[in-house]
Amino acid sequence: MSTKIHNGAFTAETEDGFVVFIIGVRLNKIRALFKWLSAIKAMMPMLKELYQNPELGFLQEQTVIGWRTVTTIQYWRTYEQLETYSKGNIHSEALKNFYKKIGKSGSVGLYHETYKVEKDESLYINMPVYGLAKAFSHIRINNKLNTSKKRMERA
């Protein structure tokens, strides 16, 4: 994430319809730290591929690190592009390796959630470019966009 702070209030100007994909791993058993790190490491080649190939439909991601979890929030153009990517070689190999190394042991958890978004609203005050604004456009809030309702109802 860029560290340049944009003072004031900003919002994201998005396109009609996009997908938010949240994926993460959770360390369930402390002794499984190396398995957890292995699962996290498997994400790196996928992100590299996505950033190098914008035609795949991937727009941007933000990684959030917690005490027992690492979560990546991704923005995609369409659900169909996300689904197609999930069937590709790098992702399929990473998933196969997860089951092989971790399987049903319960030591490491894996989760994802997918949302198709038709309308959105965002607010960033004194923040670097972040989230939707990083995936789409970062714009200063004016009188036409100075409330959540106005931002949600914009054409």
Rank of each mutant, 00 (worst) to 15 (best):
111 Y>C: 10
108 V>N: 00
72 T>R: 04
105 S>N: 08
60 Q>W: 08
72 T>S: 13
37 L>K: 06
82 L>R: 01
119 K>T: 12
44 M>W: 08
29 K>M: 15
121 E>Q: 13
75 Y>D: 02
41 K>M: 11
39 A>K: 03
138 H>Q: 10
6 H>P: 03
93 E>W: 04
101 K>I: 11
17 G>H: 08
99 Y>G: 08
63 T>C: 11
146 N>E: 08
44 M>S: 14
10 F>W: 03
40 I>L: 10
61 E>P: 00
75 Y>K: 00
63 T>M: 13
71 T>E: 08
86 S>N: 14
27 L>Y: 05
12 A>L: 00
40 I>V: 15
86 S>W: 06
144 K>D: 15
151 R>V: 03
119 K>S: 12
45 P>Y: 09
114 T>I: 12
121 E>P: 02
146 N>M: 14
57 G>D: 03
149 K>W: 07
135 A>K: 00
67 W>N: 12
17 G>T: 10
121 E>H: 07
81 Q>K: 03
51 Y>F: 14
110 L>E: 09
34 F>K: 13
4 K>V: 15
44 M>G: 06
18 F>P: 04
32 A>M: 07
37 L>N: 02
29 K>Q: 14
23 I>L: 13
152 M>N: 09
37 L>P: 01
60 Q>F: 10
7 N>Y: 12
114 T>Y: 02
93 E>C: 07
18 F>H: 01
89 N>A: 12
45 P>A: 11
29 K>H: 11
32 A>H: 05
38 S>L: 10
84 T>M: 14
1 M>T: 11
36 W>C: 03
151 R>H: 07
50 L>D: 03
74 Q>P: 00
133 A>M: 02
116 K>M: 10
5 I>R: 09
132 L>V: 01
79 Y>I: 10
41 K>F: 14
126 N>F: 07
139 I>G: 06
129 V>T: 09
101 K>R: 14
77 R>H: 12
96 K>I: 05
110 L>C: 14
54 P>S: 09
84 T>Q: 15
17 G>K: 14
120 D>K: 01
138 H>D: 01
15 E>L: 11
15 E>G: 09
136 F>G: 04
20 V>E: 07
19 V>I: 10
123 L>H: 06
25 V>W: 00
3 T>W: 07
65 I>Y: 13
54 P>G: 05
43 M>C: 11
116 K>H: 12
71 T>Y: 07
27 L>V: 04
25 V>C: 06
99 Y>C: 10
73 I>M: 06
77 R>S: 08
80 E>L: 10
32 A>E: 06
25 V>I: 11
12 A>F: 03
143 N>L: 15
47 L>R: 05
109 G>F: 02
78 T>V: 06
86 S>D: 10
121 E>K: 04
152 M>C: 11
133 A>C: 04
82 L>I: 05
153 E>D: 14
117 V>A: 09
59 L>R: 03
140 R>W: 05
56 L>T: 02
95 L>A: 13
61 E>Q: 12
52 Q>Y: 04
83 E>R: 12
124 Y>P: 00
16 D>C: 09
86 S>P: 02
117 V>M: 09
